[in-house]
Nucleic acid binder design. Structure first.
Lengths: 144, 144
DNA sequence: TGGAGAATGAGAGTCGTTCTCATATAGTGG
DNA sequence: CCACTATATGAGAACGACTCTCATTCTCCA
């Protein structure tokens, strides 16, 4: 919308109660939606507007402190950036998640990208399947 | 919502002009949003409601005839199921896309999944980077 | 302590997607 | 070939996630 050379990050970022509260909730570690985070803040007695949650999350994502992932229904999930890059193996029935780390992928991604002349490579990979527990259970018609 | 034993797929699926038109447009092969598909249909002189496009896409996805992918902004893209599984390397500046095929990934995914006891493995991988043309150009546009 | 400008909150607005329901239509039995 | 019934459709309302606006509050620094 704006054609201004307006910097996304202001000159002097400020520490506010709201941002601290949001970061505190984020510390818990799971991937959660902005709406969920907002709900948790309210539950904790913190009065933080939804817009503020979104704004701060956007800034945190922008500065690389927070990671995002997307649910099949389009809702965005946020989580504090894990120090070590990894991927997820998610059970499509119950949602149970296993973290996957492999430099096989990292190297492969780097090579392939380079081979095409692309730089600044990033990638997002998600594995889905049925976890051991759900293989015997009936395939529930679920959301996600 | 309904507590009826109502099947998602009705007893007798019917072939309608609208569905045929949608399938025809889908034949073109690219990943496109429902809105785009609807626009193309209108442009072709086909009078198909937006809701109908969504409904038919949902059915096609359900029956496995159509594949989906998601843009960072949450919009869903649809495409006829490709016979050959592959991934994409997308320029995050101009959107230029290269198809990537590699059994390195396929095998790795299979192994990792199996090692965790998961079955029915699927995965989604997207590589992003800056294409050769955009590496010298200013990182202008956003919004994907 | 005072001031400048960043941050916030409440609510309106945007946009993709789904739902509702009256109407049109495909496919079947007569 | 026609009537009938369940399915499909269209238009618009509704919905949910997310963003924007703008008046007000608050942080930080001198």
């Amino acid at each position: 919308m704006s054609t201004h050379p307006e910097p996304t990050v202001p000159k002097t970022p400020r520490i506010t109660k709201q941002r601290s509260a949001l970061l505190a909730v984020l510390q818990e570690g799971d991937f959660r939606s902005a709406q969920d985070l907002h709900a948790e803040l309210s539950q904790d007695g913190e009065r933080v507007g939804l817009a503020t949650v979104y704004r701060n999350l956007a800034k945190l994502v922008d500065s690389g402190e927070v990671d995002t992932r997307m649910r099949p229904d389009g809702e965005t999930l946020y989580r504090l950036c894990n120090p070590t890059h990894h991927h997820h193996l998610v059970c499509r029935n119950c949602g149970r998640t296993v973290e996957i780390r492999s430099n096989v992928i990292e190297q492969w991604a780097q090579e392939v990208t380079k081979a095409q002349g692309y730089t600044a490579q990033e990638h997002q990979l998600e594995l889905t399947g049925l976890c051991p527990a759900c293989q015997s259970a009936p395939p529930q018609p679920k959301r996600d």
